[in-house]
Design a protein around this nucleic acid. Structure first.
Ligand SMILES: [Mn+2]
Ligand SMILES: [Mn+2]
Ligand SMILES: [Mn+2]
Ligand SMILES: [Mn+2]
Lengths: 231, 231
DNA sequence: CATATATTTTAGTACGTCCTAACTTTTATG
DNA sequence: CATAAAAGTTAGGACGTACTAAAATATATG
């Protein structure tokens, strides 16, 4: 019996790259539309041609269904892989912030790598150590080990009308500079924000957070997701 | 500015595979002799031909010096990479055992993967959380961040004469079945063992551990490293 | 020391992943 | 709706890593 090669991926027979594709397809294909090749390419930082190639391989493996020139959706098997990966990612982020003192704007890149190397056992031990958290540090819901996850579509701040008050639920975690910017505004999961004004032609949005007013661009506002307060 | 690709290795420009080769060469080339191709191949579970190829690449990168048909030694740059990898591996193992309740016979495979994904920051945070340990759970010394490590060559139990008493310092951690076997004998770092008898022709060694006698094979004894007691 | 055996390397091939350039299809616009 | 622009795919190639089979070299043995 030969030594198991350590280069083999930790989860099934999939490489980390393939896992990341599935995760991005999961994220981009929410809401009926398949994930577009270019959107996947941008998210992963690869050329569109590379995506076309990978989609064919993933389709051959039964993990995605591809409509040529239209985009890709996850097949059930691919969805399972994606949700397990997302679970690992979010538990790892939570653990790094809670137990190892990582800054919340700093954990994403680390988790992006560890999610492929961490075994299910490690992840479940981390989850247990944290008391089985249901959300990661950026407010994103953590899928259960069985693959259940809250898939509600949330409004972003950019969707709110003037005068609306909302509770911040989650925000994009890909860009740590963005997260640090939000932190300076006091915008974090659980915070209350009010849209005080909106300049026309997609101009800046005036936000009230903890009694302070800030002007934020539409692009930033669109990356912060909220629940309207039914006050 | 494109998104950094997550497939990129965490440490320098080296892949995890190349790192593992360097680690094995470090281990096999202690004591003058270069690491033999077949020894590297066996340790990594690959064919000798694959090793020849990788050695050429590593030589081109200035990480190893190869003597054709003789074997490979680490160049200074390769030694640095190897020692950093070993530091990551051993700190990760220590952390998993101490903080996440992993069994000591179970952590090696996990660490073998995580060592390539964990950033220096993560590893230093783990080390700090543990109070900067100097040995891993199997008694192996942890190199410092600066690359210093205790490289003493230790005797194995198989080297001891009958009647010798010794303190167990460390043991091979690659095989969890082996580690569980040692645990049933009470052989762990810090334990005291006495060679009560040795059957001729490399026959079984009779060991006294915590007042109990056990017969162990020479192959097993050769994988447990000790310090003779100068009582 | 000649030759048999063991070890190592080379040659040729495969696979996953990526790229650029060229081509095809879809979509948007006048 | 014709055509220009955008999006997507294919072709061809590179790189890292692995394999097997054959050739070269080193070592052991009679
Ligand atoms: Mn994240
Ligand atoms: Mn990832
Ligand atoms: Mn180990
Ligand atoms: Mn490894």
């Amino acid at each position: 019996m030969a030594t198991r090669r350590v280069s083999e991926p930790s989860h099934g027979a999939l490489t980390g790259q393939a896992e990341d594709y599935l995760k991005v397809i999961y994220e981009k294909a929410q809401g009926g539309e398949p994930a577009a090749t270019t959107a996947i390419a941008t998210a992963l930082g690869v050329a569109p041609a590379s995506v076309s190639g990978m989609l064919q391989r993933l389709a051959r493996l039964g993990l995605v269904r591809v409509e040529r020139y239209r985009g890709a959706r996850l097949a059930p098997a691919g969805r399972t892989v994606a949700l397990q990966l997302i679970r690992r990612h979010r538990i790892i982020e939570s653990y790094l912030v809670t137990r190892l003192g990582f800054a919340w704007d700093d954990v994403h890149a680390e988790a992006e790598r560890l999610e492929h190397a961490a075994s299910a056992e490690l992840v479940e031990r981390m989850a247990a150590a944290l008391g089985h958290p249901t959300e990661d540090p950026h407010g994103a819901p953590i899928p259960t080990a069985e693959g259940k996850v809250d898939e509600r579509r949330l409004q972003s701040i950019a969707d709110l009308p003037v005068g609306a008050t909302a509770r911040v639920v989650r925000m994009s975690d890909r860009d740590s500079e963005f997260l640090r910017y939000l932190a300076t505004l006091g915008v974090r999961p659980g915070a209350t924000v009010k849209v005080a004004a909106r300049a026309p032609f997609d101009g800046p949005i005036t936000l009230t957070v903890r009694a302070k007013r800030h002007q934020v661009g539409v692009a930033a506002a669109a990356r912060v997701f909220v629940e309207a307060k039914t006050r």
